[in-house]
Design a protein around this nucleic acid. Structure first.
Length: 656
RNA sequence: GCCUCGGUAGCUCAAUUGGAUAGAGCACUGGUCUUCGGAACCAGGGGUUAGGGGUUCGAAUCCCUUCCGGGGUACCA
């Protein structure tokens, strides 16, 4: 059961006497910020007092008078300007925790009205290896899907991979001109990745060369203008303009530097230079390969058919490591034959019009149009995304779609959703679940020292390698009663734990931050053995199993014996209450698509557990009944911990 | 230029969407314990929530304004 909801319902009937619109006031019943104000508090008396022209305290007293919560709360108190403080009766909480302890769903009821929710996440471009930029979408999307599903919704996960775009043209071009067949036979995906990087580099080279003169001129012009400005002008406007101009020049210079670096990288390498000279039109020609593929060119389609499964398989390897599965992998190519109809329909409905040769949807509030077909006839991802919405509504019966995608694409989604609604898809709830950038310690987007993006695979390897050292060091330090070294874990089990700790650390670090803000990627912090990390939760869980092992307790057997949990110590009460509030937090995660609420909950739960653990002996409890009560409390806590972690996609080992 | 998202403790981040004295972790200081698993626990210091103004019983949160930073901005996805 959801305690908060129960209280809100009780209030709702009372509040009807005070207002016609109880909704917003019921929302003002919430958990207390501070334990000294009780467990929950109602803040609705102040605004109601104002609305009705009565003193808030008086309103609060009247509400309390009519309120019927005597079964679950101590007598309510009115405090301050009119806060109503509610404290749960411990016997009532005790009954509740005992029910939860024997409930498979840990007291979490499934939603009354399940929706069909499509979660669109990860969505890498298959032509290039996954990198750190895909981490958040993948980890957050997976967790949300798990939470939605547990909440009782029908969830469809769909990996909308990029398998049809410009990048594939580049690979095909690369394959036709630069492939090393031996390498391709040995490691096809590695060779394709090399080809992609090579073609990309050569494209960048020519692009940089062509841009260079103009950029230099631009800088000169800007500098001339700057020289005419007065940095110490008394006029604020002019001073500001000067600053702006300087920063613009700094930006242009930085751009110049990267361009020069790209050019130098090729010029300094005779082999690359030769290739670059031989392929001056590589960018245009790569695009032509893409166009040929889309037009159904036999050779290119054959190559695509050959490459795609290899690429998808390589992706799958990473998903397997991450313990992530999709119900569907419907990439861009899947919608190819539906795109022409989408544009036709948009035109028919007067939404898409021609402009500069392209077919565009113009939307209020947006300067740039939503381009559904380019001047050269090719379709864009706007078109594909529209086709995807249509497909998901018609084939999946989707009530809701969550796009777990970088915040930088917010304008695209805003336009996409507006267009979709204008197109007639009004009933489906479309949601851009956006997130911030993964930054390096320098506060810039996370890159390797040489400036490349960090591959996801090597990132995971690194995390697990570091975790291995920590796990080994910890196990090696274990001692027996006489103080002699006595490691407990087999090499195999150590490896398993290192994997759980390493991957868990990476995922947890990502999930614990408010998804909308950028966060700094730092191995040392995410794998730290102290503080708010996955390891801390895992350790809390393992400690409970440590007690079970030491006491020869089998949790399943314990449960079947139905010992009653008795709440005596304040730490027991705090722990029980936290456990009982699991369902509240999950419904918040569902409502806001914010897994960090769950990580915070689990961290608090672990803290409550260790506090309880420090204050109350379990195996050495004062009597058998208390011991069994506490064991049972440990058991239900361990179940919530491991269940909550599973919703984050994190493993909870029983021993560490 | 326009649009958009940010600025919170030394550092990394929260803050239940307008609630009571802004909280955690790291780092720092001090303490606990016969280690049911010390990867622990308890306590303490540390804040003009970028600056200024406004709205109201009440503001980190809403409005205005200034400063600083990120991102986006017509045929890449």
């Amino acid at each position: 059961m959801n305690i908060l909801e129960t209280l809100q319902q009780r209030f709702a009937t009372v509040l009807e006497d005070f207002t016609d619109n109880v909704g917003p006031f019921v929302e003002m019943i919430r958990p207390s910020q501070d334990a000294k104000f009780g467990d929950y508090q109602a803040n609705c008396a102040m605004p109601l007092g104002k609305q009705n022209g009565t003193a808030p305290r008086e309103v609060a007293l009247k509400i309390v008078d009519k309120l019927n919560v005597a079964d679950l709360c101590e007598p309510s108190e009115v405090a301050g300007p009119g806060f109503i403080n509610l404290t749960l009766r411990t016997p009532w909480l005790e009954d509740l925790i005992n029910r939860i302890a024997h409930d498979e769903r840990l007291g979490v009821e499934a939603v009354a009205k399940p929706k069909t929710i499509v979660v669109d996440f990860s969505s890498p471009n298959v032509a290039k290896p996954m990198h750190v930029g895909h981490l958040r979408s993948t980890v957050i999307g997976d967790s949300l899907a798990r939470v939605f599903r547990f909440a009782g919704h029908q969830v469809i996960t769909d990996n909308h991979i990029g398998d049809w775009g410009t990048q594939f043209g580049m690979i095909i071009y690369g394959f036709k001109h630069f492939v090393e067949l031996k390498a391709y036979e040995q490691d096809p995906v590695g060779e394709l990745a090399r080809l992609y990087r090579l073609v990309n580099q050569l494209c960048d080279y020519h692009d940089a060369k062509s841009k260079l003169p103009e950029l230099k001129e631009q800088i000169e012009r800007a500098e001339t203008r700057l020289a005419e400005m007065d940095p110490d002008s008394p006029d604020k406007q002019q001073k500001k303009a000067y600053k702006k101009q300087s920063s613009e020049i700094a930006g242009l210079r930085a751009e110049l530097k990267t361009l020069k670096a790209k050019i130098a990288a090729v010029d300094d390498d005779p082999e690359l230079k030769e290739l670059a000279d031989k392929h001056p039109q590589i960018a245009v020609d790569s695009r032509k390969q893409t166009a040929k593929l889309h037009a159904g060119d036999q050779e290119n389609v054959r190559l695509w058919d050959e490459f795609l499964p290899l690429c998808v398989e390589a992706l799958q390897k990473i998903y397997d490591r991450l313990d992530i599965a999709f119900d569907h992998t419907l990439g861009e190519s899947f919608y190819n034959d539906q795109l022409a109809d989408v544009v036709k329909d948009l035109e028919k409905k007067g939404l898409a019009v021609e402009s500069d040769g392209a077919k565009c949807v113009f939307l209020e509030g947006h300067a740039a149009p939503f381009i559904v077909q380019k001047a050269d006839g090719a379709y864009t991802y706007a078109t594909t995304d529209l086709a995807t919405i249509k497909y998901r509504v018609e084939e999946f019966g989707a009530d809701q779609m969550c796009y777990v995608v970088d915040a930088r694409q917010s304008e695209h989604f805003s336009m996409l959703f507006k267009t979709a609604r204008a197109w007639g898809y009004n009933d489906v709830e479309l949601q851009h679940v956006q997130f911030g950038t993964v930054m390096g310690k320098d506060g810039r987007p996370y890159k390797t020292r040489s400036g490349d993006t960090v591959g996801l695979e090597s990132l995971l390897d690194e995390a697990i390698a570091k975790a291995s050292e920590i796990v080994a060091a910890n196990d090696d330090a274990k001692k027996d009663a006489d103080g002699n070294p006595r490691p407990e874990l087999s090499p195999e089990y150590r490896a398993e734990i290192a994997e759980a700790v390493g991957l868990g650390g990476v995922k947890y670090a990502d999930l614990m931050h408010n998804r909308e803000s950028d966060y700094v990627f730092d191995y040392d912090k995410m794998l730290a053995t102290t503080g708010n990390t996955a390891t801390y939760l895992q350790y809390a869980h393992a400690r409970i199993y440590g007690i079970f092992r030491k006491g020869n307790i089998l949790p399943a057997k314990l449960r079947s014996e139905v010992p009653r949990i008795e709440i005596k110590d304040p730490t027991e009460r705090a722990l029980a209450l936290r456990i009982a509030r699991y369902s509240e937090f999950l419904s918040d995660v569902v409502a806001d698509c914010r897994p960090n609420l769950l990580t915070q909950y689990l961290f608090d739960l672990s803290n409550d557990l260790t506090a309880f653990y420090a204050a109350c002996h379990v195996l050495n409890a004062e009597d058998e009944q208390t011991k069994r009560s506490r064991l049972m409390l440990c058991d239900v806590c361990a179940r919530v911990l491991s269940h909550g972690m599973s919703l984050l996609g994190i493993k909870a080992p029983q021993q560490m």
